[in-house]
């Protein structure tokens, strides 16, 4: 499956990763070669094989719905780039 310049820009936008046109060209070459390598998977017949998501086939454990964590907002906001009154600051979203 060949990769177009637009595919790279689309993935970059979905991943919220800033790329300029020159970088997008370079990544198209790299990603194209990686996908070419990955395309070997298509040659394998996997009819009837169930996908394996967890190497031990385990599923998520459930626990009782109890509050187990104390409030640590201040601790966790100490490593934030910009906070005020306990809120994370970002550029204005709603005018």
């Amino acid at each position: 499956m060949a990769l177009e310049h637009a595919d790279v820009l689309r993935a970059a936008h979905l991943a919220r990763l800033g790329l300029d046109e020159g970088e997008a060209d370079r990544y198209r070459d790299d990603l194209g070669r990686i996908l070419e390598m990955v395309d070997q998977l298509q040659s394998l017949d996997t009819d009837g094989v169930a996908p394996l998501a967890h190497p031990l086939d385990a599923t998520q454990r459930l626990r009782a719905d109890e509050v187990t964590e104390p409030d640590q907002r201040e601790t966790f906001q100490r490593c934030a780039p910009a906070v005020e009154n306990g809120l994370y600051l970002v550029p204005r979203v709603v005018e």
Binding site: L3, A15, Y27, I34, V38
Partner: peptide
């Protein structure tokens, strides 16, 4: 970035 882009694409 390369791996984020590959992963996002696939």
């Amino acid at each position: 970035k390369r791996r984020i882009l590959i992963g996002t694409h696939t």
